[in-house]
Design a protein around this nucleic acid. Structure first.
Length: 492
RNA sequence: CGGGAAGUGGCGCAGUUGGUUAGCGCGCUGCGUUAGGGACGCAGAGGCCGGGUGUUCGAGUCACCUCUUCCCGACCA
């Protein structure tokens, strides 16, 4: 099955090469682990962007942009934060090159050393809070609700296409609030936005919950997350939202005058999703024939393939297709006519399946005569003969059906691979088989780490919407008392 | 940074105990026949075999060095 992003199978590499290629600079490849996103793949990302951006704006946020470079000193102002990111930072030390005196090319000009090194942002909390210091003076300036679309760099030791690239695209929201309660509500609201996006647009069922202490974001008081199950049973953290308390406000001295005229530190949140979502989309829905895109994120909803022998047939078919296309486009559908005359229909069918286009309409002389089309859906790979009359309405409804169906398929898969486990033996057995395990846990980091050491499984989250199990029990590992079940799984 | 594997046309690979002109599939170009599930024929283009140094009459093949990539760990969204 084409589920592994790193698979080398011909079929697989063919279709992910349509989305992305790894940067391939032959020598001294410093850009290893970065990706080139090709137009078709980027179109999917843009769909995600536009949808999320609208959701952010609908919840009162505005976009802004902050610098790529962060002075080194900023990073050290929040102790936990620097500890979390210090090991994976790209650092700019010089600002000029020069011709090598020996004529062998260019070298870094030693005279151009920066007084203070610049860090290429691994995340923007520090530079943004340094800016917020100047923006926030009064309670009237709050809440400050800002989002940034940007690229960030994390110099990971090991990269993985889409899931952990050295450079990735994301959005990061950074908000400031007058009260802790308001900030917590914001963090919860935004994880809710992510959950809604994953479920309704990506058609990926997710579990919303809190991270355990050891999985928490560096510098956060509380981290909320959405966790998705991939087709191999492994978990993928698809988005996070953090309640940062006053940690960054204190580190960057961001205070406001409240209504009584007293200075108070503001309360903060940050939240983000990245191109990792592309990986989630791919690994959640793909099958052996390639990508399966949910209609709401598909750059192309319908591809039309003419089947013809002669140029006359071709032009008659394309003419008819143009009129059907216009009908469908009038309903907001994105339609492509594949009128390439050097490829056979079968080849085109396979190619568009590889790209995950939800619906294919094939038309030949027979259809032209009978006023029908052959309509195939990507999710079920089934074909039907459908009248041309009313095709736009038909396809519009089909898009909803497909969207629902692939969500349901993913949900059924997750339900079938999520079980309550109460004994350690069963835990070890089931975790190997790719299950989400709902287990009691004694709440200690010590136990969590031991479980991870023995099984590679981690606490994905302490669920707060689905799979909430507020029932007393005994920790599956230590036997100590526990108030609720948490989700254990192996993760990407 | 540890443990494995691999570098040969754009992609995927073969290449025997060293032997002469380095092959195959896909893709690409041209012409023709085809066309309702990845067509076929013919004719072409494209490679100093990752790099270096050795051994040898002779190196894709052997030795040493080096660089890079992939997989498994540590790290992580």
């Amino acid at each position: 099955m084409a589920k592994e992003l790193t698979s080398r199978s011909d079929n697989y590499s063919q279709w992910y090469n349509d989305l992305v290629v790894k940067a391939d600079l032959a020598e001294n490849s410093a850009v290893r682990g970065c990706m080139v996103i090709k137009p078709y793949g980027y179109a999917i990302w843009e769909k995600m962007q536009h949808t999320l951006d609208k959701m952010f704006k609908d919840t009162g946020h505005s976009n802004a942009y902050f610098p790529l470079f962060i002075p080194k000193s900023f990073l050290s102002k929040e102790a936990e934060h620097v500890e979390g990111f210090a090991k994976e930072c790209a650092v700019v030390t010089h600002h000029r090159l020069m011709n090598n005196p020996d004529g062998s090319g260019v070298v870094v000009d030693p005279a151009a050393k920066l007084e203070e090194e610049l860090i290429i942002r691994p995340t923007s909390e520090t530079i943004i809070w340094n800016t917020y210091k100047n923006w926030i003076k009064s309670w009237r300036d709050l809440p400050l609700l800002i989002n940034q679309w940007a690229n960030v760099v994390r110099w990971e030791m090991r990269t993985r296409l889409f899931l952990r690239t050295a450079e990735f695209l994301w959005q990061e929201g950074h908000t400031a609030h007058a009260t802790a309660a308001e900030a917590v509500a914001e963090a919860e609201k935004m994880v809710g936005v992510y959950a809604k996006f994953a479920r309704e647009f990506m058609a990926v069922p997710v579990i919303v919950g809190h991270k355990s202490e050891s999985e928490r974001f560096a510098g956060a008081i509380d981290t909320y997350c959405i966790e998705a199950m991939m087709q191999d049973g492994k978990a993928l953290q698809a988005g996070t939202s953090h309640f940062l308390g006053q940690n960054f406000a204190k580190a960057f001295d961001v205070q406001y005058a409240n209504k009584e005229g007293n200075l108070e530190y503001v309360w903060a949140t940050s939240w983000g999703v990245s191109t990792r979502l592309m990986g989630a989309l791919i690994m959640a829905h793909s099958d052996d024939n390639g990508l399966v895109l949910p209609p709401k994120l598909a750059p192309i909803h319908v591809v039309m393939v003419p089947i013809f022998k002669t140029p006359e047939e071709h032009s008659a078919l394309v003419e008819k297709m143009e009129s059907l296309k216009a009908d469908m486009e009038a309903k907001g559908l994105s339609v492509k006519i594949d009128d390439r005359d050097n490829l056979r229909p079968g080849f085109k069918f396979a190619e568009w399946e590889l790209k995950g286009v939800p619906c294919r309409i094939a038309m030949g002389p027979r259809d032209l005569a009978s006023g029908t089309v052959e309509l195939a859906r990507r999710d079920t790979l089934t074909k039907d003969s459908v009248p041309q009359e009313g095709i736009a309405e038909y396809v519009l409804k089909l898009m909803d059906d497909i969207q629902d169906n692939i969500y349901k398929k993913a949900l059924d898969f997750r339900e079938a691979h999520t079980i309550k486990v109460d004994t350690w033996d069963e835990f070890k057995e089931k975790i190997e088989q790719g299950y989400f395990l709902l287990c009691h846990w004694d709440g200690t980091t010590e136990t969590e780490l031991k479980i991870q050491e023995e099984t590679k499984a981690t606490i994905r989250c302490i669920p707060s919407d689905s799979f909430v199990c507020e029932e007393p029990g005994k920790c599956v590992y230590s036997g100590k008392p526990s108030a609720r079940r948490v989700v254990f799984a192996k993760a990407y």
